[in-house]
Amino acid sequence: MSALSIKNVWKEYGDQIVLEDVSIEIASRAFVALVGPSGCGKSTFLRMLLGQETQTKGKILLDGEPLPKEPGPDRGVVFQRYSVFPHLTVLGNVMFGKELQASRFAGRLFGAARRAVEEEARAMIAAVGLMGSENKYPAQLSGGMQQRLALAQALIMRPKVLLLDEPFGALDPGIRAEIHTLMKKLWHEAPMTVVMVTHDMREAFTLGTRVVAFERPRDRPEEKLRYGATITKDITIWPPRQAGVPSIFRPDRDGPVSSKGQ
């Protein structure tokens, strides 16, 4: 279970109101695509879900509990850039979270414990299609491969919520289509709720179960400071898309659904 409930959330930076009275219930295992004009506060909203910033007013609940004030392993994230560690190899990056979790002092594993984590990491690397690149550094990977790596690194922690901030914005259309197929597969398989910010409407409608638009209802220059953005559209994809279940009308629409999905 990983339902998010956002109640009357406001976010202000000094005098500037960025988000105004945002309320939304996000069901467990939903895939919410967040769209809106540049500068309207999508990343800010995502950072609040992540715990990197706190809301000025209002409540954010994860499974009924207030969100912790800091980022933690229950919420994974992939940013557009800087999501992987340049000083670790592909394998090192994917193993990283597990190593930190198991070895609180040294942050490193050795021997049998390490082999177990390594096996899990290799399976994850294979799942995102990076086999053969285990010993490369991120600088030796293409942009698409780096984002696959970032996904693998986040997913190995089995987060309840996966937050994506324009993760595929810098990729060319061909690579983007490939990574969409991967993203659907991962969403079907892992028991998580996804919130993704994107500027690409097509991406929003191919991946999401729901497309949510942020906008400033009042956007005249003299109103900019005092009025923030809020949710103006909330569209549920039809026919509905459900994690782990093929689409009723066109079974191939939502990508490969393995029997593992629940």
Partner: peptide, 15 residues
């Protein structure tokens, strides 16, 4: 982003 990413991977300040 890199520090935040590490936090989501359960890293402590020390780690």
């Amino acid at each position: 982003e890199m520090i935040v990413k590490a936090e989501t991977l359960s890293a402590s300040s020390w780690q």
